[in-house]
Computed example of a mutant assay.
Amino acid sequence: MLVRWGFLSGACIWSVLFAIGCGTTGPDLVAPATPAGFGRIGGGDGENRFGWQKNREKDLAGYRMYRAEGDPAAAYQLIATISRDSTSYTDRNLDYTIQFYYKMTAFDNAGNESPATLPILAIAANLTAPSVPTNVNAVGQNLVPPASISVSWSANPEADFAEYWVFRSVTTPAPYAGTPVAIVPRGTTSFNDTTVAVGTRYYYRVIAVDKGGLKSPGSQSAEVSDVALPPATLAAPGNNATTASLTPEFRWVAVPQAAGYKLIIYADAGGFTQHGTAYANSPATSIIYAGTPLVSGRTYYWRLAATTKGPDQINSISTMWRFTAP
């Protein structure tokens, strides 16, 4: 090409007609190609897993994944920025009842972003029911109104777990179908049943339910039971009586379904200072006290706790009576 005259300026050669060449370039305005082969390739419970072919651009920085709910024309939200070397991505903890639409782009080091792929519909799979709740326990109480039975269990580990269903019955085995007495949300592992009748034993079973409605095997769920006991009726020594010895016998009327009884002797009428305790298993209805010695002439106070789960788990407690050591 004929150039009439020119000059060299820096790294560029200029002519009066046009620039012949230059060693510098302008900004990168070329976006990567749209990722090819984008599609759903599987996924576990509550998951959508996608794959695509790797882009070939040398200045590729990565990929962006977008998601919309319910309608391919809805607004898409960026849910993940993915490294340049990846060719798959898994979207987790999804609701099985929602239709999700996905599209993705590639972007380079200069920030240029490719046109998006066509949207694809992907509904999360629900493959496996939750595991059976473990360490289920029931503890009744009639100490603080209203009488109640507290049911507790260990948390389920599944990522797609949604809630617990608690079933109750006055007969065994407790059901694991029908209408639950309580539905307990994820994150809570107990239910306090305050609709119990004092003296009635209730049987409970806990079922785990996932976001897709699959339930843990109810027939294998542990059944537990307890009862809110009525308070014991004291018999002897009578209220305001003087005992016959410093190792007196304490007697009461049996409480149906009690597993045992805990005698509590106090040094004050407010019940703030315990002097001594003793325990007897059912069907006993008396205890000869042989604990911390009583002091002759001193006034004491006593109550009787009824238990169903051992001496340290008081279920109900009697009124307080007073006696004097001889």
Rank of each mutant, 00 (worst) to 15 (best):
G62P: 07
W252L: 04
N48I: 07
I98T: 15
D160G: 04
G37M: 08
G6N: 04
Q257K: 12
S114F: 06
A182I: 06
T247G: 00
I41A: 11
G199H: 03
Y76M: 08
D312H: 10
W302H: 12
G111M: 09
G51Y: 03
T307F: 03
A116G: 07
V136N: 09
D226S: 04
A147V: 06
S150D: 12
F100H: 13
P119G: 07
A244Q: 11
L246Y: 02
T292P: 06
T233A: 14
T134S: 15
P185A: 04
Y102F: 15
Y203P: 02
A129M: 05
L246N: 10
A259T: 11
A125Q: 14
A68V: 11
Y102K: 06
A280T: 01
T188W: 02
A36S: 15
P146D: 05
N93I: 14
W52N: 01
P115M: 07
D210I: 01
Y176D: 11
D108T: 08
T273Y: 09
E223C: 11
R84M: 07
N126S: 15
I98N: 05
L246S: 13
V224P: 01
A305Q: 07
T179H: 00
A122N: 01
V139Y: 12
D160P: 03
Y164G: 03
G271Q: 00
V255W: 02
I82F: 03
G39Q: 13
A241S: 14
R84A: 15
A75K: 12
P326F: 10
I265A: 01
S296M: 07
P175G: 11
I20F: 07
T319M: 09
A174L: 08
P175V: 10
G23A: 15
R251F: 04
Y266I: 01
Y76P: 03
A306G: 09
N112F: 06
T134G: 12
A129S: 13
D312Q: 13
T134P: 00
A110V: 05
T25R: 11
R92V: 15
G26Y: 08
A31F: 09
V209H: 03
